[in-house]
Design a protein around this nucleic acid. Structure first.
Lengths: 222, 222, 222, 222
DNA sequence: CATGAATGAGCCTTCATTCAT
DNA sequence: CATGAATGAAGGCTCATTCAT
């Protein structure tokens, strides 16, 4: 039941429809009925091919994960002998592309972004197979930029700052469209966003040099 | 039915339980039955006091919004004659506090954070009454830091970068606890996070001066 | 609880509202909440003054029954020394008026008409206090017209034929307005309807004389 | 979901039970729970086979409409070369049969009679597919009897008088059984009722000839 | 007398799942 | 492999009624 290969035509149609609908609605709001209707398949087919709704979600996640990583491998455009700043830029562009792309394999990006802020039971799988490698790469780049001596915790904070920016531009549409009608931060702005986040963050990383000038009093309260 | 004040004991218990459960489960997964069980109230009480589930959610949102803004007013600790850098720090601390506090009024923070990335029909109300004023204040501070000549779009990008960082530290627990067991970015780290985000971002804002040094090759439109 | 006089102002307002709403919606679709809202009264007042919804309905029925019979007594316009044909006409006019009137005391007419075709548990009361006297009068008039020798069953059939016509013009609006847009058989056509039903029925009653000419073969089948 | 044929055994059992219960209770008082219990089916079967309660009611109406019209086509026993008086008799017999039959397909009769006086949202369908054709046929017969020169309004009044009589004998049971215990006007009296209504009405239609003799003073507008 | 608050039963609908063929 | 049919649990909501003051 678990690993029954998605071989048949029906099965493929279901995967297709499920990708689309899960991405649109999220796991819990998506219904197997809608998925089957979209796929033109019988409702019992899900049970046959994937066991149950969870099994289907898992299969979808794994399937499109592969596609997404073929299209946007974490190290896309990163070469060993590049300057770390350039590596960071490449990383950000790839990350943004993966989560903002709205082409066909984009379903994974949307699901990924969703899981980041609203994890389901499937989150563990994503962590191990997708998120950890990305974070690993990112922290290496950051450490290279900040210098090997940096404390681990600082590096992690900075990683989070960068990832947080990327994710938020992914989710920003509802708030942006209301606050600033006309503004858009979407897939077509990936270049602009890449540049902005890269520059904004690179300066943030140049800690030691400017710390003095920028120091502000902290911890007055609490 | 609409504005019936939450006056009675049952009504208060329902608000309490609803705050907790909505914050835990989100609007659509939360059930009125669970809320009533938690509140020790009859299920029809929701209809009586709040009309329906939507009315309850709205009441919860507005109620805890008030509490949250009394506890953490947007301009908390900000004085007119402060340096803008200090204003930014105060803003970030307040924003973080509001969304990360895990005391009693914390439910609003969680609901707010949830609506940011998964808006419901109630989002419009939050935008007007909560989000817009905060963004307004933030952009003013940023403009002050970057200089009045800055293009509006740039200011907005930077606002998003800052808000995105804050929100992500709010959501980070699931991913952090898996990637780096032992690390925590939570309410008790607000001081640390405030300092990190403030410094990280202040440098990011000092655009003009350092742009040359940091310039990296940006890809042509792809 | 049963006979608590409807003395207070609240109680009167409830009777008023209940009359209107029961007439509009019928017993089972009307809700005590709507009635209380309309009356500007507290929902518990119904329980206090009338026991329960049934008690209220009963009180309304009895109250407006009195009013209706003061306004349209069964023998309205009927004098002992009249020709029976004129008595019949007067009866029909009164009956039509009672059930079609849409002025204030009209609620009883609507409720009566409703009970005729969709009796509730309150029907028994109406039968004894309202319907039986009317039928009694009608059968007397008919017997007078047809001759005392007429079999009881025939008289009853004719009574039903007359009452049936009246009731149906009362209920006809939905079907008439769809079949013949523009046509109306309502309260403002009472004169016309009275004349039509009277003439149509009077001829029907002249049985013996014409029976031969009109005889058609009956009972071929079944 | 809409037109799913009532093919399965459960579906048929539900139609059966629904026919019975809708006829007994009317649309709004009937509950899907009762229907399913009666049918020995799960409550979700209604959703599966008919979409919702409305869909079920519609299906029941249409299904038994077909049966009723196969059993009692409007023109049952009417031949082109008959005398119009005989046509009228045939019409009345068929109409009475359709609404008074208490065999299996009788549910439609009851539902029809109910809709006549208490229309639901389904009434429009009945008007177009069932009521209008019947009325059409009836008015043609009447016009033939009264002469082509008759004013349309008069013909309509007479149609209503005839239909009203039929319907009322259908509804009469509650009032008859109380007023005259022992008397019954039911399905077994269709022959008798047909003869009565036919003769009663035929005379009513012979307007012109006798008008003088029967003229009664009609009140001026009051 | 009157009220706001609370109650429990019941309503229609929707869902993921499983059965039998 | 595939399907139409069936299932039980659960969801949000509405109602007449009653409690306590």
């Amino acid at each position: 039941m678990e690993d029954r290969k998605a071989s048949s035509k029906t099965s493929a149609a279901i995967m297709e429809a499920a990708g689309k609908i899960f991405a649109e609605e999220g796991y819990s709001k998506a219904t197997v009925r809608d998925i089957c209707r979209e796929a033109g398949a019988n409702i019992a087919a899900i049970n046959y091919h994937f066991g149950d709704k969870k099994g289907l979600y898992l299969a979808v996640l794994k399937h499109y994960q592969e596609i997404a990583f073929q299209t946007y491998p974490p190290n896309l455009g990163i070469k060993e002998n590049q300057k770390p700043e350039e590596k960071l830029q490449a990383f950000i562009r790839t990350f943004l592309s993966r989560i903002m792309d709205d082409g066909r394999p984009a379903w994974f990006g949307r699901l990924l972004a969703r899981e980041f802020t609203q994890p389901t039971w499937a989150f563990d799988i994503l962590v191990e197979e997708t998120i950890r490698p990305s974070f690993q790469l990112l922290t290496e780049i950051i450490a290279e930029i900040m210098g090997k001596s940096s404390r681990e915790r600082i590096v992690r904070l900075c990683s989070m700052s960068i990832v947080g920016q990327c994710l938020y531009f992914r989710h920003s549409h509802p708030v942006i469209s209301r606050l600033f009608p006309g503004e858009v931060f979407g897939a077509r702005q990936i270049d602009e966003l890449t540049e902005h986040i890269t520059l904004f963050s690179l300066r943030g990383l140049l800690k030691e040099k400017n710390k003095k000038n920028l120091q502000v009093k902290t911890c007055k309260k609490r």
